[in-house]
Amino acid sequence: MAEVTFDRGDDLNALSVQAMEELKAAADLLSRDTSVSAVLLTGGAVFSAGADLGDPALRKRSSMSLLEQREAVRLGPDLCEAWARLEQITIAAIEGFCIGGGLALAVSCDHRVASQDAHFRLPEVPLGMNMSWRSIPRIVALIGPSRAKELVVLGQKVEAEKALAWGLVDRIVGKGEANDAARALARDYCAVPPIAARMAKEAIEASAHSLAYATSFMDRDQFLLSRTSKDHEEAVRAFSEKRAPKFGGD
């Protein structure tokens, strides 16, 4: 069993460029480790608030050429893909909230174990952006298309009990107990013959996600396009001013 902990020691645990690069590097390293049968991904007091919008490295993208921006925004989907393609069983232990890119990363894992006070939210579409990082096929596979529309399009907060009923998470435990519960599940997987387990996971993933790339390969271009819309500017402005937005479809 291996454990990867992402904890910035604050109340957001946001995903900076550096954090995403390190998390991807951790997955790439583990992909070559034949001694590990299960991998835990844990956060701090909260799992993650998503992308760190205050990160200078993210803000720098606005001055890049379009081609450079397109290359830069590969990091999010590449991070999630690195975790999704691990042959070991992966388990995300979620305390507190799991928002935006944090949820995209969590659904890239095989299992999600959440504390009873955890909640989940995708604010991207209400802010005039698409939901990217190739996460939509994974979300649809977990909760179905109707519930995916509630989660993705409406951006509503989903509490732990509803997330369990929907299939977004697999276990709910007491506050502060997610890591221990995830380790217990990992130990169950570690007791299974590793070659057979890896082959079974590969077959299941191929069955569940055979069209995932075909339905999500354009989402980084959609992200770049949606970020240029007036509706996105209005959504962000309205959020900052604490008022209802007025969208014009532009």
Rank of each mutant, 00 (worst) to 15 (best):
V39G: 00
D219K: 00
F47H: 08
A148H: 07
A72G: 09
V158M: 11
V113P: 04
S35Q: 13
V173E: 00
K157S: 12
F6W: 04
G44Q: 11
E124K: 03
G174F: 14
D52W: 14
K242T: 11
G128N: 04
A19P: 11
A186S: 11
P123F: 05
R171G: 03
D170L: 04
L67Y: 01
N13A: 08
R198S: 00
E233C: 03
L225K: 05
A196L: 05
E87F: 11
L154S: 07
A181M: 08
L66F: 08
H209A: 06
P137R: 08
A197M: 10
F247Y: 09
E202K: 05
L224P: 05
Q156F: 11
Q88S: 10
E233S: 02
R121Q: 13
A208M: 07
A208N: 06
T215L: 14
A244W: 09
M218C: 01
I195F: 04
M20R: 15
S108R: 05
A163C: 10
W133A: 02
R138K: 12
D33N: 15
A235Y: 03
V113S: 03
G54R: 11
D55T: 12
S135R: 08
L103E: 03
K201N: 02
E71W: 00
T5P: 00
A200V: 06
N130A: 09
R85L: 03
R138T: 09
H119M: 12
M20N: 10
D188P: 01
R138P: 07
V192L: 01
E68A: 14
K24A: 11
S65I: 15
D250G: 01
C80G: 04
F239A: 11
D28G: 11
G174I: 14
G144E: 15
E241R: 09
G155T: 05
Y213K: 02
W166S: 02
D52L: 12
G174P: 14
L151D: 02
A118G: 06
V125L: 02
G50F: 08
G50E: 12
A26C: 07
D11V: 15
L15C: 13
S115T: 15
S229I: 04
E234C: 00
Q116H: 14
F97G: 10
S16R: 13
S37D: 14
R112S: 12
A84S: 09
S229Q: 05
G43E: 08
A14Y: 12
E21T: 15
G102P: 13
L58F: 10
